[in-house]
């Protein structure tokens, strides 16, 4: 672990216009010692499908890294690999010693036959006094959920409770897999603002997985665009200009990015579907909830 690469140059193989991935990966870069977690050459084969192709990722303290990519681009596999629950075909991951990771999974469908209050859920596997649990709930704006059953929460409340659970053990790195699932649009903006605040207050690193480009990008320090391999990466503006990004997400969305940093050019119904969407976005909003 020598030769730390600064964040700016940890710019995972950037191919320019041509990205047909007959590319040369070159010699492996050393781990980034300034990073909380540093992954090199992560490769995953499932059958004969290449899910992850020599992916390099670094996440630093106080940094929000957003991982974007179309459906099936390997986002969740990459997250699972970084969490250490995905066996890999190749590559290596270096973590800061005893790195504490808080994780918010993409889907959370608790069986209604399992009665459990929010307080109990937060303390599962952690020995925390009730005051600490209320404090972390207050931090995410869900203090009134303390005694409620998990199955009774709304989509937005559940996401906040999941975030609280991820924060209970005071993690240094927060990993959020599509944290705005099942949340309406104002709730979504609030949730991203909350994540930004948590980073500022707690000084944690954040890895955010998203299919929703506009809002996320405004909050991010760095964006990784994944499609099996890292297509392009950098500050949001750089990625938005990148031809590979435009190819993946469609020129319409890519052009819209600069303008629509804080609002959307289309309304969404409560089910998350676009109400007025004649134009092609090229990105998916996932399952309607």
């Amino acid at each position: 672990m020598t030769g730390a690469t600064p964040a700016e140059t940890a710019h995972d193989h950037d191919h320019g216009d041509d990205c047909a991935c007959g590319h040369d990966h070159g010699p492996a870069k050393p781990f980034d010692t300034a990073a909380l977690i540093s992954a090199r050459g992560l490769t995953l084969m499932r059958g004969d499908r290449l899910i992850l192709d020599h992916v390099d990722v670094d996440i630093h303290p106080r940094e929000i890294v957003t991982l974007i990519g179309p459906n099936g681009s390997g986002k969740t596999s990459l997250v699972r690999a970084l969490l250490g629950v995905q066996e890999l075909t190749g590559g290596e991951i270096s973590r800061v010693e005893r790195l504490k990771v808080g994780y918010v999974p993409q889907r959370f469908d608790i069986d209604r036959a399992l009665p459990m209050t929010v307080a109990r859920f937060l303390s599962l596997g952690h020995k925390a006094p009730p005051s600490a649990l209320s404090a972390v709930l207050a931090e995410v704006g869900a203090e009134r959920c303390f005694g409620q059953q998990l199955s009774e929460l709304s989509g937005g409340e559940l996401q906040r409770v999941l975030l609280a659970r991820a924060l209970v053990a005071n993690p240094e790195l927060l990993v959020l897999d599509e944290p705005v699932r099942g949340v309406d649009y104002t709730g979504e903006a609030d949730l991203y603002a909350l994540i930004g605040n948590l980073r500022d207050k707690r000084g944690i690193g954040v890895l955010l997985v998203s299919h929703d480009l506009h809002v996320v990008m405004a909050q991010s320090d760095r964006v990784l665009c994944l499609n099996g391999h890292i297509c392009c990466s950098g500050v949001p503006e750089t990625v938005a200009q990148h031809p590979e990004y435009m190819r993946l997400f469609g020129p319409e969305t890519a052009r819209a990015f600069g303008v629509y940093r804080h609002h959307h050019d289309h309304a969404h119904g409560l089910d998350g579907r676009e109400l007025r969407g004649a134009h092609d976005h090229g990105h998916s909003h996932g399952d309607a909830l």
Binding site: R80, L83, V85, Y103, L114, L124, G125, R165
Partner: peptide, 19 residues
């Protein structure tokens, strides 16, 4: 009991937390 409960709540979350 505790690990079984955590797996029942969310298997992937439990695995990520070291169960």
């Amino acid at each position: 009991w505790q690990p079984l409960l955590r797996v029942a709540v969310h298997e992937e979350l439990a695995s990520a937390e070291g169960v």
